[in-house]
């Protein structure tokens, strides 16, 4: 598995070259959000708004009303928890094409609870007009800006930075509101997002080796959540479904799937794996294990659905990599 570095940094330059009306707004974290090169290349399209996210959000609305396409770069927590009213009333209500690039989503930062956006999806799924994307690898980082640009309204992106694996072929870009099928099977459905997809791929490989027929799909569009292939997969899975996400266990992918199950009368069991509450500052690998959003917990959830122990150990799952994101 290839590890790509600073994919957004490069992709943003490509994207900006194609769209001269694209501007970047920063709240003093641009260098932590891979737009240092953008600033060097397009200094007149890089607007520092200071450590003042509320004004940045409404200011972006003014720019968007004049035909610019603002891309706000800061940490995800500061783009929803701190400025929800501005996001809603300045941008989402008028359905303006403003893109919120939320970096270090979920527990991908050791910065502790103030920096960890564990409920951004849950909060923002209730915001009308807003689309939510949650990228899972370098290929999706390369494709998500184009999807955001084409969306008719505001977009929130949970963006990954620095070393990110390339899990999906570079020539198979992310598609709007369409899950990516990573494994076909009938026993259980695994729906994963963000950094949990790599975990789920590890678990799926081991589960399949034990004879479990696994349908694994990676979800990158969390709102809207009307993908018919997800509905079909939920109807197909014999024992039920597991969701695993880099997010609080309430409000995110798992809750979205639960709504689909109920609304379509599918009547399957669902195990939601997410962080159980507020988290604390530590390395990504430590936090994923501690809060249970790793391959081992996914295996346990599948065992629960099957009603059968599979006797899979950490060692069975261990050969794949983990990269820690140590910098805040």
């Amino acid at each position: 598995m290839k590890i790509e570095v600073n994919t957004h940094e490069k992709n943003m330059l490509r994207f900006a070259a194609a769209h001269p009306e694209v501007v970047v707004l920063s709240a003093d974290l641009g260098t932590s959000c891979e737009v240092k090169q953008f600033r060097a290349t397009y200094p007149d399209r890089y607007f520092t708004l200071g450590i003042a996210e509320q004004n940045m959000c409404s200011w972006a609305a003014g720019l968007a009303r004049e035909g610019y396409r603002p891309f706000l770069h800061t940490f995800s927590v500061f783009l929803y928890r701190r400025i929800l009213d501005q996001l809603e009333m300045s941008v989402a209500y008028p359905n303006l094409p403003v893109v919120f690039l939320g970096f270090v989503p979920g527990i991908t930062t050791p910065g502790g609870v103030t920096h960890q956006s564990i409920n951004d999806v849950g909060v923002l799924r209730t915001v009308p007009n807003l689309a939510i994307f949650d990228v899972g690898d370098a290929t999706e980082i390369e494709g998500v800006l184009d999807l955001a640009y084409d969306y008719n309204g505001p977009v929130f992106i949970r963006m990954l930075r620095k070393e990110v694996p390339r899990l999906f072929p570079a020539d198979a870009p992310m598609q709007f509101n369409r899950a990516r099928v990573l494994s076909e099977g009938e026993d259980v459905l695994i729906l994963s997002s963000s950094i949990c997809t790599e975990e789920a791929m590890r678990a799926t490989a081991v589960l399949k080796a034990r004879g479990v027929s696994v349908q694994h799909m990676h979800v990158s569009t969390l709102k809207p959540f009307t993908d018919p292939t997800v509905v079909a997969a939920l109807e197909k899975c014999r024992y039920g479904a597991v969701t695993i996400e880099n997010h609080y266990c309430i409000g995110g992918l798992g809750s979205a799937v639960a709504e689909v199950i109920a609304e379509h009368g599918i009547g399957k069991r669902l195990v939601k794996i997410g962080v159980p509450g507020y988290t604390h500052g530590a390395s990504k690998m430590y936090l994923m294990k501690k809060y249970g959003i790793d391959a081992m917990h996914l295996v346990a959830a599948v065992e629960s659905l099957l009603g059968t122990p599979l006797n899979i150990t950490e060692a069975d799952l261990a050969e794949e990599r983990f990269v820690d994101f140590l910098e805040v």
Binding site: W59, G62, L63, R65
Partner: peptide
């Protein structure tokens, strides 16, 4: 408090 920022963003764009 939001409209003044929207107006200023508009002024910035203009």
């Amino acid at each position: 408090g939001q409209t003044v920022s929207i107006a200023a963003g508009t002024a910035h764009a203009r």
